[in-house]
Write a protein that binds this DNA or RNA. Structure first.
Lengths: 219, 219
DNA sequence: ACCTGAACACCGTTCAAGT
DNA sequence: ACCTGAACACCGTTCAAGT
């Protein structure tokens, strides 16, 4: 917030009080923070290597010592965001019903999508580029898997508290995830602008709940 | 298909047999065709103004006489695609049940999304750029509205043939559209790779049908 | 009048040169 | 040893110059 825009040289962080010279970890962190800030402020087009370097207090050349390329920076940002979302989902209360839970997840998803939705394009490009070996790609993939698991756990628990269960088909979770994502994207892109977005999220959550759960069979 | 790759000068189309010199319509068409072909062959990164111009048999400068900028070309492509999708939806059979209809729409949507999904990013950037007046943006918006209407009509009719009706809430259509879009995106991005994509589409179509229709109340 | 393509102001990325 | 930033090969866009 009070970060200097035209700071001269390296603004020392709250680390062990000295120079950042040679500190790979700190520099990586600052680079990521700078990239995230630029993305928030000016959108995708404001995110250039030169401006990231300036804001992070490094040089363009040095950035390439910590990241393979620009895509790699996005990937790292995306990964951190998914990890955060996973924590948020895991922390959601289970005792207010499946619909309320799903609505909350849609909300979270819309927030993340608003910031990093464009990332999915980058992600797809990266996958297409045949360098699946890339660590950052594996990281995003793994984090995504953990996110999916967190959603499954949360929904299962919330359903149980209502005396309901998830349907048994394999496609139930992918469908729920896709549906929530689609609704979140719609909200962010403001399609259905004639609709109150809370009302839309609420209806969608209820509809998805109807679609993926059923009342528990008597034991 | 048999289009010349290194054609010299202007390859005359099936128009009135003469030069294309000064023919704005034809040049616009060729530019769009070239852009679509490049997009299909090399993805987003292959789509440069220089290569579009070369392939279309024009110059970079002339392209800017028919399109405001690169974004405008995408917009026109997107618009044509939505119009085609609308026709496809309108032509879908109504007598095989809502689920089959929805599955077919998801299929169509996945095909379109695979080619132009990235477009949604461009679209959002364009909207953000405050030049809502832009004709190409209005066109896409209007075409989108007509697509939505076509889906509504198709689903309503298919439901009626099964003795069902759409639920009455305003959010029903946006939810259905978002859900189908989300599922289509998942299929294209190959999330849920462990699942057969037909099975996934089928389950999703059935789930969405459950969520948005109910049996018709006795008259 | 219509069209071209060199020129401009960028971009991501590299690597010789500095400290 | 570590870091910088000019240089390279692009990009979208414009506009003087050609026909």
């Amino acid at each position: 917030m009070a970060e200097r825009e035209h700071g001269y040289g390296v603004a020392v962080g709250e680390s062990s009080g000295g120079s950042i010279y040679g500190d790979a970890g700190a520099r990586r962190r600052r680079t990521l923070d700078a990239a995230a800030a630029l993305l928030d402020e000016g959108g995708y087009s404001a995110l250039t290597i030169r401006s990231v370097a300036k804001r992070a207090g490094t040089s363009t050349g040095l950035i390439y010592q910590y990241f393979a390329d620009k895509q790699d920076i996005f990937m790292a940002l995306l990964d951190e965001n998914i990890v955060e979302s996973t924590k948020a989902v895991a922390a959601l209360p289970r005792d207010r019903g499946v619909t309320a839970l799903v609505a909350a997840i849609i909300d979270e998803s819309a927030r993340r999508w608003g910031r990093l939705g464009r990332m999915s394009q980058v992600w797809r490009d990266a996958e297409g580029a045949a360098d699946m070996e890339r660590e950052s790609l594996r990281a995003v993939h793994d984090s995504g898997t953990r996110y999916d698991e967190a959603v499954l756990e949360a929904v299962t628990e919330a359903a149980a508290k209502e005396g309901r269960v998830l349907r048994g088909e394999t496609a139930v979770l992918p469908f729920l995830l896709s549906g929530m994502q689609g609704v979140a994207a719609s909200i962010v892109n403001n399609w259905a602008s004639y609709l109150d977005s809370d009302e839309f999220a609420q209806f969608s959550a209820a509809a998805l709940t109807r679609a993926v759960t059923r009342t528990e069979p008597a034991p």
